[in-house]
Design a protein around this nucleic acid. Structure first.
Lengths: 332, 332
DNA sequence: TTGTATGCGTTATCAC
DNA sequence: GTGATAACGCATACAA
């Protein structure tokens, strides 16, 4: 492996000059500079990033710690993070925590040990301990779920989205909208439920119909089943996430209910399939890519030191996308 | 930032003893060892991974260079890689090349400079130059698309999958199956087309019907349109990727054709939506997660030096998943 | 502008 | 079993 000294010898200069040249310092004689560059090219020199990082006491690595990159919501966040990171010369370490506090803290430790320049974290259910990170002075941005610690964050106005979706269901003529949300310890589940409740309460004379379940397909299936088995079942459903929505769809079809006629449907998350099911599914779209991009931006500012001392909290809005599943057609 | 010397002083031992203790060397007096561990905990010591990497001349970082993590096929590969990497104590650097030779070579250089322990690469269309990597002795595994260089690889028997799918269409009673495949310079597109062609030729007396398009939704739309506008249009379609399949579905519906009755459909890739469209879509499932997991496994073996000198080539099989879209129902 | 020399925080080699 | 010390490859303070 050729190192800086080899290049220096080849070019007949000192290592300092090689270093300066390759790091684009202006104070190098153009003549020498080109001799250095030629020598480096001739020898196929590749600077050792590890040594450089050690000396500079800084890396150009970002850690992205999320539940699961296979969840389309996080996939989009990941893409957003990676795009702005790359544009600023940073690379991203991908960490799937699977909502497992153990894996999460392992990754947090890895991030700290590898001296990453910053961390973007979607904390698990029960809150996460980023105390070590903060003590170590590692810039951090929280996404999707809040943390009590005073750090930068990027969130989505879930509650407002749920509320708008519920209002829409009612406006469309559905009389008994219900909500299928996530587990109690999931903040986003709570937010979405509250959005639903506030809409229903405001309309008055409407029953509050809701159930919880895991944020997975099966959670949707069983949630729908429980609601539909009730003596006075709902006639429309707001589902808190796309994976659950697939389960709901399954259950609804199993019962022979016609979406848009017998039952109205709307779900959180613009998954790739939503506009291709029959009928197309209305959604509360979350700006997932932007969450990632903005979080990365915040982080870069923080790393560059060009951020205010106090933490900044970004709140992105959802977008209501109305398709056929939530429009009420008269039964034939 | 507390360093190893601080811990040594706190524990009243030498840095060597601290290092040995924290790296789990057995040859340390248990008494001293616990004193060291206590001191480290008391001080909140975090080993500096960068310094360690420099000294050891090795990192526990893997670079994963793929076209786009947002493509479900690559998402699954990514998850597979990350899982086995983590289980072996490695982290993964996520790199989206977007099929752009420029981005790809940038990432290749980053990987080399950061002295990653290994690289998993899905080369872009026109072939990729991993010469530098090989010269630098960086273990590399190629996935999804071949490269002439003699390195480890994990591929899918695309051709056989396409052939099985075409055979299935014919067996199901479709008389004029066609193929919508990707661009000429995409190896997988070629393989899938050839699989289709071999099936059709073997059956004899059948027209070879096929078109190419970009591996995107729009490619499916326009491909389907061109085929269906022909004087003698096909009655069934084999589509080379899931994103194209969405486009095909769109076009087919636009024309009022009933899937499974007027036209048979089957596509490559088990995307999350395939079983939820109406009617459920038959697919040629690729073992994407396994591709990633196996590639990572191969790479780890190579890194550990426990791999044979000659490159190993894994070939994973596809799985035909027959759903309603490719079964032929009599028109009502 | 250029060169020399020091140190970044570890691990590992060598004596003891 | 333990400790002193020399690398690892680079960036930079300082001297020239």
């Amino acid at each position: 492996m050729v190192k800086i000294g080899d290049v220096a010898r080849e070019a007949g200069v000192s290592v300092a000059t090689v270093s300066r040249t390759l790091n684009g310092q202006s104070s190098v004689d153009p003549q020498l500079a080109s001799r250095v560059r030629e020598a480096a090219a001739r020898l196929g020199y590749r600077p050792n990033g590890v040594a450089r990082n050690l000396r500079r006491k800084a890396t150009d690595l970002l850690a992205l710690i999320i539940a699961d990159v296979a969840n389309p919501f996080f996939t989009a966040i990941t893409r957003g993070v990676e795009d702005v990171a790359r544009s600023r010369g940073f690379s991203v370490l991908l960490c799937n925590s699977d909502e497992d506090p153990g894996k999460e803290s392992t990754y947090l430790r890895v991030a700290e040990q590898q001296r990453v320049a910053g961390v973007i974290l979607s904390p698990h259910r029960d809150g996460s301990d980023i105390g070590d990170l903060r003590r170590a002075g590692v810039p951090t941005v929280i996404v999707d779920r809040p943390l009590t610690e005073p750090v930068d964050s990027v969130m989505v106005r879930s509650r407002e989205g749920a509320r708008a979706a519920t209002d829409h269901l009612i406006d469309a003529g559905w009389r008994r909208p219900a909500c299928i949300t996530g587990p109690e310890d999931a903040w986003t589940a709570q937010e979405r439920l509250e959005g639903y409740l506030s809409a229903v309460r405001e309309h008055g004379e409407m029953d509050e119909l809701w159930v919880r379940g895991p944020f997975r397909q099966q959670g949707g299936t069983s949630g729908a089943a429980r609601l539909l088995d009730a003596p006075k079942p709902p006639d429309a459903l707001l589902v808190a996430n796309a994976q659950m929505a697939l389960g709901v769809l399954e259950e609804v079809r199993r019962r022979g209910l016609r979406v848009g006629i017998d039952i109205g449907l709307i779900t959180f998350d613009e998954a790739p399939w939503t506009s291709f099911v029959e009928p197309p599914m209305s959604v509360v779209a979350q700006p997932a890519y932007d969450i990632g991009a903005q979080a990365a931006q915040l982080l870069m500012d923080r790393i560059a030191g060009s951020a205010p001392a106090e933490p900044r909290h970004l709140q992105l809005s959802t977008m209501l996308v109305v398709r056929a599943s939530s429009r009420r057609q008269a039964p034939r």
